[in-house]
Amino acid sequence: MTRALGWLIPGLLLALLTLNMDALTPLFHLLVDAPAPAIYARDSFLNLLGWHVLAVFVAIAAATLLALGAAIAVTRPSGKAFFPLARALANLGQTFPPVAVLALAVPALGFGLTPTLVALLLYGMLPIFENAVTGLQQIPASVREAAKGMGMTPLQRLWRVELPLVLPTLVAGIRISLIISIGTATIGSTVAAKGFGEVIIAGLLTDNLAFVLQGGIMVALMAMMLDALLRRLEQRLTPPGG
């Protein structure tokens, strides 16, 4: 029951505030001077939530495919020589601040969602890549030999043996990247991408603390809910004593 509350309470609060932020109008009125609005109303919180989730999940899904593919490649005997290069490329996304990536991407990709996806993709690859490599490297050689002795092809060994064993570690990396990206996605609003960053930036530009808190609270609730859900998934995927 306690574990369920870890994601259920943030999830319920997120849903309630998304559908009825106006209920907190009296509270937020204390933070603004009349006649400044207390609740952000230029767009619905439901629409902003949808765009924020879309940006984060599309970017992390792409980052997962690329990072996992690279991790599999460099942990094969034929690809070990490329491991330093793959790690350097994964680290590159963390080296460049997302704002710098946006500044470089906008001239080529224009304003909106696309440059934000590029920034989130580059920023989210490293934790997934490192966790996938660690998980694959920690699989005992005896397990691989047993699978080989059963007549499995390399592809069958990867799909039926290695990936199921590495899944808990991989999910941990995805969780870290997802939580980072939920917060990082707010900067996408600086290049006209929709999301809760729009509320925060509107608050900063108009010196409206209520707007800043509304955007920040929604982002925090998203992060708390998804972190708790993915932690539960990790626990379910981890074998007893694993």
Rank of each mutant, 00 (worst) to 15 (best):
A4G: 04
L5Y: 13
L5A: 15
G6F: 05
I9W: 08
P10S: 08
L12D: 08
L14I: 05
A15G: 13
L19K: 08
D22E: 11
A23L: 12
L24Q: 00
V32E: 06
V32D: 02
V32N: 06
V32Y: 04
I39A: 09
W51L: 11
V53P: 04
A55Y: 08
A55M: 11
T64N: 05
A67K: 01
A67N: 03
A67S: 14
G69L: 02
I72A: 04
P77L: 02
A86F: 11
R87G: 00
A88D: 06
N91D: 15
P98C: 01
V99H: 03
V106M: 05
A108D: 03
G112P: 11
G112R: 10
G112H: 12
L122P: 02
Y123H: 13
G124Q: 12
G124N: 11
M125N: 03
F129S: 02
F129T: 02
L136F: 15
L136M: 15
A141D: 15
S142E: 15
E145D: 15
E145W: 03
A146W: 02
G151S: 10
T153S: 15
T153F: 07
R157T: 13
V166T: 14
G173A: 08
I176S: 10
T184E: 13
A185D: 09
T186I: 00
I187A: 04
S189I: 07
A192C: 07
A193P: 08
G197L: 00
I201F: 13
I201R: 12
A202Y: 09
G203N: 08
L204I: 14
D207I: 09
D207L: 11
N208R: 09
Q214C: 05
G216D: 10
I217Q: 07
M218N: 04
A220H: 03
A223N: 10
M225F: 14
L233A: 14
R236K: 12
P239W: 04
G241Y: 04
G242F: 05
